[in-house]
Nucleic acid binder design. Structure first.
Length: 927
RNA sequence: GCCUAGGUGGUGGAACUGGUAGACACGCAGGACUUAAAAUCCUGUUCCCGUUAAGGGAGUGCGGGUUCGAUUCCCGCCCUAGGUACCA
């Protein structure tokens, strides 16, 4: 019987499903291992061959770990709230839940075809009420929490209230809004309920506040910073503008430092860690106040170079800075207003594009230098950002290039402050020299000057050391329908939580999925949707990242009605040991998940500071487009003649995308091409060597480029095992690479060879019970060792090559020994589970039991060489013949030396500690 | 500009701590089997010189360096991909 992938794969997929082979439980003495894939958003387009790359890798790893005796949790689910289903609903009126359900079913079918070992009994869907009930519950916990900086953790808001009740606002060290009240115990107790709630809102980790948001008019919703790329929306690429709105936010900034510190404890790809580090953007510096006597106020600036303070020759405010209007003198008013008007009209995109031109305006006012007391001019300019630091900078033209250009342009003084500076052409920010023109720090170096200055500023109450973060709080509301309702109602204009036992707050039905006529979010259309029939619910829904910020917990205990995951389950599974997914989530999902994880830890729900111990980014699989070249006539119009790639330069041609599914190894299937469109039916071709060769280009995989390859088609032709092996064979997991099927035949051929090892020439199943030869053991143990090493370092592509070598060797040896083949199957099982299960049961083992087999033990003895003899040279100076060995003990070294007096002579009687052999040659001796 | 990763045959890629560069696969060429095709198997395949062969030379983006020995380490440069950008 020949290898029939279709019947084998169907048989085993059904077997695994019927027997719940991969169902996982906590009740075991085995060590646990948690392997997680980033769950997909179920889009209408279904899976293409790029999607499963990471899933295949994680499945191989999971199966390998199971064989190695671990209790593996390997679940899958769907991030099923999101924009595309809602956009589809707007167009067609179909409820997003129906679209989503259909898409999920399609995804499931495609996933099943690949033969993954997921425990489907643990599936989660973020849009199901049983799931989002707990998303809402976590939101409630966040609303009911504040961040105690002293304890460096979040606590229940009750502990803050009791502090207010016993000692007022005195001594509270909390992460909060900027403008907080200070009050005594009596004042607090006399506050009205509304006043108390208003004040508490400034401390809550989920809070409502008027803030500047990224508003996307085309999508009709606000977006978080990570959802805005280069000034346009991540989804759809629509323009985004800044707008002030009442918005729900998450006080992620409270965790900035812990999020930063945690990065050192986890095993993530360096680029990704770097991205998070930059996103958090910690700067250590100082805040300095420049007094403005006429307003009896100060301008506060943040600087990372307080040592350059004597080089300050002016101050620059962001055009939006709150003091600008008060500082503007009568004579400068027109100029300032014109400048503000000009900059406010610039869109985010223009501002990003134009960073070269220097622009700004003088307010006419002066501030006092905090140390010298001299007057410094106050300017406004759009190179200072309102959103970072205090929205004001002290300008040091000699040390900062932007300040330098600004000073040159407006003819402002440039004061050198270091004896090592060269400021003839540009600012010089080096910290190496001794200070000059700098009063009491003259002659000091950087390390001495900074603490001296901080001390001085503190004594004058005009400055202090400060740490600043680039990261902003995350906007949490979305003015959309298809998301989790926020479990909040409004009373006296203030938000209150609904009761825990009233969860889930179900998403109400609406007649249309568009904003209301008055501009409220779609939930405003839900008729009679009121809390206790009188209070307005929050009409925004949660953002896409809400449901994905804790889902790995739900897999641990997906059916629990009493809590998001039981203490026992959480204590058993702890954190995700291996997480595989794309790097596009670096500053979104992966940051928010770490935040929520830390928060839930603070409240005592689990003990893991970091949710994902090890992370691997699989590279994107790009499309490989094929082109045909249509010949143009004299007028440049397309004819119905097509010329092969190699001859196209002899003609005037127009390249056209051609469906990659009718091209094989870049050779066009002419008949299928003719059938593909009616006007191609009489197409003519100019061939080379009797073939039509297509051109190629690497592009993103998309329908419009006719380069989408559906895994189902590959599976039908070659089988899931071939697909799995081939996707791994394609190249390193973490590297982006174009999809091409040019080499898939080789992998398919390999599987047929495996099959044939178990069958005789007539195709009958036949294995021998004889004791294998040394050579056979060697082939086997080479692959055992190689695959162990490769899987542990996620180098799956080299394993596939090693399998091919192994099977070629066994074929050459005509080996069909049970002892060899049985172990080979176990090693191959993670990569090609269907064929191995089939052959395993043909060997007479219990059906389906390879999933529980024991991984064969590697024995290095089989790899030790005993044959002779290569001519070798040492230091290029002598030649001799020596036995081959991998590793030698002292007696073996002596033996070799005794047998080779030439070497003895060369070594001049010095004792040899070690002989280093490489692939059978002495390459060095350690004396 | 800055950060990160990378640059190896016709192609995808291997070479793990410095040790036979090009494993494995695709493609291509030739051959066996076959009436023929498919399938399968065998041989060759970095480039250049050498009629074949024996043999020789060059070679991992470019230019230097360290080393008995460099795809690997160091210095300078070029290019590609991803990220990021008036962050004070």
């Amino acid at each position: 019987m020949e290898y029939n992938h279709q019947s084998i794969e169907q048989k085993w997929q059904k077997f695994w499903a019927d027997h719940q082979t991969f169902k996982t439980s906590e009740s075991t003495v085995k060590p646990k291992f948690y392997v997680l894939d980033m769950f997909p958003y179920p889009s209408g387009a279904g899976l293409h061959v790029g999607h499963p790359l990471g899933y295949i890798a994680s499945d191989i790893f999971s199966r390998y770990k199971r064989l190695k005796g671990f209790n593996v949790l390997h679940p899958m689910g769907y991030d099923s709230f999101g924009l595309p289903a809602e956009q589809y609903a707007i167009q067609t009126g179909q409820h997003p839940a129906i679209t989503t359900e259909a898409n999920i079913n399609r995804y499931r079918e495609q996933l099943d075809n690949i033969g993954f070992s997921y425990d489907w009994s643990r599936e989660v869907r973020t849009s199901e009420p049983e799931y989002y009930r707990w998303t809402q519950w976590i939101f409630m916990k966040l609303f009911d929490a504040w961040y105690n900086k002293q304890a460096d953790k979040a606590e229940s808001i009750d502990t803050l209230i009791s502090k207010f009740e016993t000692s007022g606002s005195e001594g509270i060290n909390a992460e909060s809004d900027e403008e907080i009240l200070s009050f005594t115990v009596d004042q607090w107790n006399n506050f009205s309920e509304v006043e108390k709630q208003k004040e508490l809102l400034k401390y809550r980790l989920a809070y409502l506040r008027e803030s500047t948001v990224n508003w996307c008019p085309a999508l009709g919703t606000v977006l978080a910073n990570d959802e805005v790329i280069n000034g346009v929306s991540e989804r759809g690429g629509y323009p985004v503008e800044q707008k002030k709105m009442m918005q729900w936010s998450m006080r992620i900034t409270a965790y900035a430092d812990r999020l930063l510190r945690g990065l050192e404890t986890i095993d993530w790809p360096e680029p990704l860690v770097e991205m998070q580090r930059n996103w958090i953007g910690k700067s250590v510096g100082a805040s300095v106040k420049f007094p403005i006597p006429q307003l009896s106020d100060n301008i506060e600036v943040f600087t990372t170079r307080v040592d350059t303070i004597y080089g300050v020759s002016f101050i620059v405010l962001a055009p939006e800075h709150e003091l600008v209007s008060n500082l503007t003198t009568e004579s400068q008013k027109a100029e300032i207003e014109a400048y503000i008007d000009k900059t406010s009209k610039k869109s985010e995109l223009d501002r990003l594009a134009d960073t070269k031109t220097v622009s700004g305006a003088f307010t006419g006012s002066y501030a006092k230098h905090p140390l010298t007391g001299e007057d410094v001019q106050i300017w406004i300019a759009d190179y200072v950002l309102a959103g970072y630091g205090t929205g004001a900078v002290m300008a040091v033209p000699s040390g900062d290039q932007r300040d330098y250009l600004f000073a040159k342009h407006f003819n402002l003084p440039i004061i050198p402050i270091s004896d090592s500076q060269d400021i003839s052409e540009a600012a010089d920010s080096n910290k190496d020299g001794k200070y000059i023109n700098s009063d009491f720090i003259n002659g000091m170096n950087y390390q001495e000057a900074v603490p001296a200055l901080i001390e001085k500023l503190e004594s004058l109450k005009l400055g202090k050391a400060k740490i600043n973060f680039r990261m902003r709080d995350a906007i949490f509301g979305r003015q959309r329908y298809w998301g989790e309702p926020v479990p909040v109602y409004f009373k006296d204009g203030l938000p209150y939580l609904i009761k825990e036992e009233e969860l889930p707050l179900l998403l109400p039905e609406v007649d249309k999925y568009l904003p209301t006529e008055t501009g409220e979010p779609p939930l405003g259309r839900a008729e009679g949707w009121k809390y206790q029939d009188q209070y307005e619910y929050e009409l925004s829904t949660m953002p896409g990242w809400a449901g994905s910020s804790w889902y790995w917990f739900r897999y641990m205990d997906p059916k629990n009605q009493a809590t998001f995951a039981s203490k026992e389950a959480v204590d058993y599974w702890k954190a995700v040991d291996l997480y595989i997914g794309g790097s596009e989530h670096a500053t979104g999902h992966l940051l928010y998940s770490r935040f929520w994880n830390k928060f839930l830890k603070d409240l005592g729900y689990h003990n893991e500071e970091e949710p994902f111990k090890k992370l691997i980014n699989q590279g994107m699989i790009q499309g490989r487009s094929n082109f045909v070249y249509r010949i143009l006539d004299e007028e440049g119009k397309g004819t119905n003649k097509f010329v092969s790639y190699g001859l196209k330069n002899n003609y005037k041609v127009n390249p056209l995308h051609v469906d990659v599914n009718i091209v094989h190894n870049d050779i066009l299937d002419l008949e299928k091409f003719k059938q593909s469109r009616p006007d191609y039916s009489d197409a003519e071709f100019i061939l080379e060597n009797g073939k039509y060769i297509c051109g190629t280009e690497v592009e993103k995989m998309s329908k419009s480029k006719f380069n989408v390859v559906n895994p189902d088609d590959i599976i039908e032709q070659y089988g899931a095992d071939t697909l799995r092996l081939y996707e791994m064979f394609l190249g390193p997991l973490e590297q982006a690479k174009p999809w091409n099927t040019n080499g898939i035949e080789g992998v398919y051929k390999f599987l047929r060879k495996v099959w044939r090892l178990f069958h005789d020439a007539e195709g009958n199943f036949s294995v021998s019970e004889e004791e294998p030869s040394k050579a056979e053991y060697k082939a086997l143990h080479k692959i055992i060792k190689k695959v162990e090493e490769d899987v542990e370092r996620f180098s799956f592509n080299t394993s596939v090559s090693a399998f091919m070598i192994c099977v070629n060797e066994l074929t050459d040896l005509k080996s069909n020994k049970r002892k060899i083949l049985q172990d080979l199957l176990i090693v191959l099982e993670p990569y090609a589970p269907h064929i191995t299960e089939e052959l395993w049961s043909l060997l007479g083992n219990e059906e389906g039991s390879i999933s529980y087999a024991e991984y064969p033990l590697f024995n290095p003895e089989y790899l030790v060489e005993s044959e002779f003899a290569y001519p070798v040279s040492i230091n290029g100076k002598m030649k001799m013949n020596l036995p081959l060995a991998l590793d030698l003990d002292q007696s073996a070294v002596e033996e070799i030396l005794k047998a080779n007096p030439d070497v003895q002579k060369f070594l001049d009687g010095k004792p040899v500690k070690k002989i280093i052999f490489v692939k059978g040659k002495i390459i060095n001796m350690v004396i």
